[in-house]
Design a protein around this nucleic acid. Sequence first.
DNA 1: GACCTGCTGCGGCGTG
Length: 714
Amino acid sequence: MSAYDLLSEPIRKYIREQKWESLRKIQEASIPRILNTDLNYVLISRTASGKTEAAFLPILSKVNFREEGVKVLYISPLIALINDQFARVEKLCEHLDVRVTKWHGEASKGKKDQLLKNPEGIVLITPESLEAMFVNKPYHVSHLFASLEYVVIDEIHSFLGSDRGMHLKSLLSRLQQINHDRFSIVGLSATVSDVNLYVELKGFLGNTENTKIIRDHTPKPINAVFRYFHSDTQELPIGLLKDLYVRTRDSKALVFPNARGRVEEVAVKLKRLSEKVGGHQNYFSHHSSVDKEVREYVEFFAKNAGLQNFCISCTSTLELGIDIGNVDEVVQIDATNSIASLIQRVGRSGRREGRASNLYLYSTDRWSLLQSLACWLLYSEQYIEPVEVIEKPYDVLLHQILSVIKGSSGLYLHELLAKINENPTFSLISEGEAKEIVNHLQEIGFLEKLGHEYIIGVEGEKVVNNKDFYSFFQTPVFFKVSSQGVKIGELPLSPQIREDENVYLSAKIWKIKYVDYETSRIEVIPAKDGKKPLFFGDAADTVHRIREKMLEILYSDGEYDFLDEEAKRILKEMRKEFSVFPITNLKEERPLLFGNGYTKFYSFAGSRINKTIGFLLDLAGAEYVYDDHSSALICRPPEQEPFTRLAAIRLTEDQINEALCEALKKNPALIKLSKWGPYLPLKFQAEILKTKYYDFDACFRFLEKIKWVHNIGE
DNA sequence: GACCTGCTGCGGCGTG
C-alpha cells in the first residue's frame, strides 16, 4: 500500500483538492511510520520540503479527536511561525471538524477562554506561554493536556544546546508527568549536525530508544559568487553597493549584512540608488528593532509580491521558518558565524522558471573573506557544526524550582526533590547540589518555609509575579521611535540619540525632534540624509571547525573559480604573508609571529577556546590584546612573550573553580550572561561561566596538542 | 564594531 492509501479519507480528500501530483520524500517516509508506531520521530529535511505536512497528515489520520481534551500540541520558537502554521493546519483540518487554537501572548483571549471551557483539538503554543500556564494556572495544564497524544516541535534545532531548549525539555518532562508518558513527540528540523543527531537530539525528546530519525539528504543546488570590496571605514564601500544593486534590482532578494545598523545602511542606500535610476522602490529592512507592524507589512508584501521585485535587508529574523515565499537571490555581506546559519539563509532561495539561483558572498576585509570561504567550503561538504549540550543547567533548575513551587500550594523538600529527580533535564545534577540551590534560594528570600513546606518568599514573589519570569532571554531597554503617532521601531540609548541628529530606521531616514527620557520615547520627522543607527550586542562565537578550515585554506594551493579577481588577489596575498611560517601539520601547528615590538599568536581556534586562553593569560598576569576576528592574541613588548609558556599551564578543576569565583567576586556582572545565574550560589555561577563562556577542556586539549611555529626570514 | 527569540492578570474604558 502506498503512503497515500494509508491516510484517512478526509486527509486524502484534502490532498486531492490541493492537486498535489505526489507526496514529498519526507512525507512518504513519515506517514507509514507515524501511523503504525507510537515512537518519537525527528523529521529532517530542508526548508520548504513539506515537513509540517509530513507530521500532520499521519497524525490527523491517526488521532481520535472525538474524545475530550487537547490531542495535539504544536510548539514553536516564534509567534510568527505559529500564525503561519495556524493557517496551514486549519486548512488541513477543514474536512475533519477539528478545532485549532493559537495560544501565545498575542493570541485572542476569547479563543483561549473558549478552549478552557471546552478542551479539544489542536493547540499551537510557545514555550514561554506553556511556562506561564504552569505557573499561573497549573490546573489548566492538566485540564487541557492530560490526554494529549502528540507533541510536535517545530525548528527543533533552534532549541538544541540553548537555555531556552533546556527549559523546553523540562516543560516537556513536566507535561509527560501529568500525561503519564502517553504522548509521542515529532520534531521538525532543517539543520542538525550528525554529531548531535543520535545523542542530544534523541535525548531532547526524553527517550533515546524510542526515538527514530527520518532524514532526506537531497541537497539544494546553488551557485556561490564571491565579491571583494575593501572597506576601511564604518561604511560599506560604494562599489559594493553599486554591484549589489545591479545584481539584485531585477529579482526578489534577501540581503544578510549581519548587524542591524548595516541592515539599515544597505536598505536606505540601495533604495536611494534605485531612486536615481528610476528602479523599483520596494526596499525594506527587517530586524528586531523595526516595529512589529512594519515587519508584518514587509512579510505580507514579500508573500504577496506576485511579479513585483523587492529587496529585504535583514538579520536572522528572516532565517527561521517564517513564510515569505521563495526569493531569487540570497546575499550574505561578510561571513556568517556558523554553517547552520548559512544553510538556513541559503534555504530561502528557490528557482524561478528558467533562472539560476545564486548566493552572493561579499567581503569587506580579508579575514571575513577567509571565514566566508571556509563556511562555503564546509557547507559544500555538507558539514554542520555540532552544538554544545548543557550537561548541568543549574540556572534552568533554579528557574524550574521557582516555577514548580509557585504552581503548587507549598511543597515538602522530598516532594520537590522527587519532581527534580523525575525530570531528565537535570539528571546529571546531584540531589546534594539541588538541595544547595534550594537552601540558597531560601537565604536570599526567594523561598520561604511555612511549617515544613516550601513556598515562594517575599523576594521571590517579585520575580515570579513579573511577566519577565517566563523566558530565558534578557532584553535591554530601548527607546520607542515614532513620527506623529506612527510607530517606526526602537533604538538603544547612545550618543547618537539627541535632538537634530539624523538616523536610518525601518529603511527610512529620520531627524530626531525630541527625546523623552521619562517615557523612553523618541519623536522623529522624515529627513533627507543621515547615519546608520548604533546598536550594542555581543559578538556571536565562531566555532572551532570554521577556524581550522581557514588555516587549511591558507596552507593549501586550492584555486576557487567562484572568487572574483580581487578576492583571488587577497587570498594570494594572505597565503604569501603566512608562508613565512613553515607549517606542515595543520592539526597541530599554529603561527607565532615575532614582529617589531610585539608577538602575535594566530590560534585559528574557536572563540571560546580563545577566550579561555585569554583567561589563562590574565591569571599569568600577561598584558595582551585579543582580536576574535582574526583569531589572534597580541602581546607587547615581546620580551614577555607568554604564549609558548601556555602549554605548560595545567590547572586542576579546583584551581579553575577558585579562579572563576575570584573573577566573579571582582566583577559580579560576569554572570549576567545567564538571566537566572545571578540567583545561584557563587560556585554554581562559576560552573555556568565554565560551560557558557569558556571551554577549559577544549582549551587544554588544544594547548596540549599544538606547537608554535614562528616566522623565518630576516 | 556586535543576532534572535516571549510575556499574566486585572482594572478601566468604550461599544454593541
